[in-house]
């Protein structure tokens, strides 16, 4: 007797080149962040060393140093850790709140849905960075405040991403059939509705992480969010700007880090989208 095992989405994920490349890039960045989190960076990112200021990349300072002689590599990975922490916290909040509201709205409809949709429309009406700026300004500068600000900005996207599929799936015959079969509402929700709404949410999480990193960098570039002397990729870019003409490395490496993690997360999002959608999987 032959048992047919369904290939899981993980099998499909590793069939896509972009998925593998994306996962590699993101893993490298996460590993570096962990290195920094355990203070395993080669040099203390805050340590100033005026003698070796503005050195180009060399064997001691892999990415060179800034105008205070701080090691750019150590500062970059420290900045990456901060950016990732902010991104993960903010996207977690946005996803939890957004998906909850979206599912509730889609499921119950009526005035609940109206409130959810209208309020998310209001948030949508502002450009993301502007709204985040305003919120950070009123909340404060800690990384948690930054995360909350970014979470508020990205919650409406999760509301939309969850609400749409719920509206479609709840009208599908298989959801109606299990209603006729007398299954309880929580059971229908968890076993039959959510798994089919899950895929777009996972993809959205990957994409939102990359946007959140950009927003966080943007905020610190503008002087909000992370404050000196702490390292942040956005802040580093901002500080290195006047030096660009003679110390390209101070600008280049943090920028490359931002680019790599954003591109990586986008590729992961693409890979997940293809792997989770049965219609996009090639047959066979």
């Amino acid at each position: 007797m032959k048992t047919v095992r369904e290939k899981t989405w993980i099998n499909y994920y590793f069939k896509s080149t972009s998925g593998i490349v994306g996962l590699f890039l993101v893993s490298v960045m996460i590993t570096l962040s962990i290195v920094s989190a355990f203070s395993l960076a080669p040099i203390d990112p805050l340590e100033q060393n005026p003698i070796s200021a503005l050195q180009g990349p060399n064997s001691t300072y892999w990415f060179g140093t800034d105008q205070f002689g701080r090691d750019i590599f150590s500062r970059s990975i420290d900045g990456m850790r901060r950016s990732l922490s902010v991104a993960i916290l903010s996207v977690s909040i946005a996803a939890l709140v957004g998906v909850f509201l979206g599912v509730i709205g889609g499921l119950f409809g009526g005035w609940i849905d109206n409130i959810v949709v209208r309020s998310s429309d209001v948030i949508f009406a502002f450009p993301a960075i502007l709204l985040a700026l305003a919120i950070v300004n009123s909340l404060g500068n800690s990384w948690i405040d930054t995360s909350i600000a970014i979470a508020i900005v990205y919650t409406p996207i999760f509301i939309r991403v969850a609400r749409g599929p719920v509206l479609t799936v709840k009208e599908m015959d298989y959801v109606k059939s299990v209603r006729v079969l007398g299954f309880s509402t929580p059971r229908i929700l968890i076993r039959h509705l959510m798994p089919n709404v899950f895929a777009p949410i996972v993809v959205q999480i990957a994409l939102s992480l990359s946007w959140a990193i950009l927003t966080e960098s943007g905020l610190s570039f503008l002087g909000l969010g992370t404050q000196p002397p702490d390292a942040s990729l956005g802040l580093m870019v901002s500080e290195a700007q006047p030096l660009a003409a003679f110390a390209w490395w101070a600008l280049a490496f943090p920028s490359i880090f931002i680019t790599v993690v954003v591109v990586g997360l986008n590729l992961v999002g693409d890979g997940l989208r293809d792997a989770l959608d049965p219609a996009r999987r090639s047959s066979g």
Binding site: V180, G182, R187, R191
Partner: peptide
């Protein structure tokens, strides 16, 4: 009273094996 739908392509949960789809009814009740 039970209902059988017209379109068997949409009346079964695409992420559930057919065995567990039948078993679920028996277990739930």
């Amino acid at each position: 009273i039970q209902l059988v739908f017209q379109d068997p392509y949409s009346s079964l949960n695409p992420r559930q094996t057919i065995g567990s789809c039948v078993a679920e009814v028996i277990k739930t009740h």
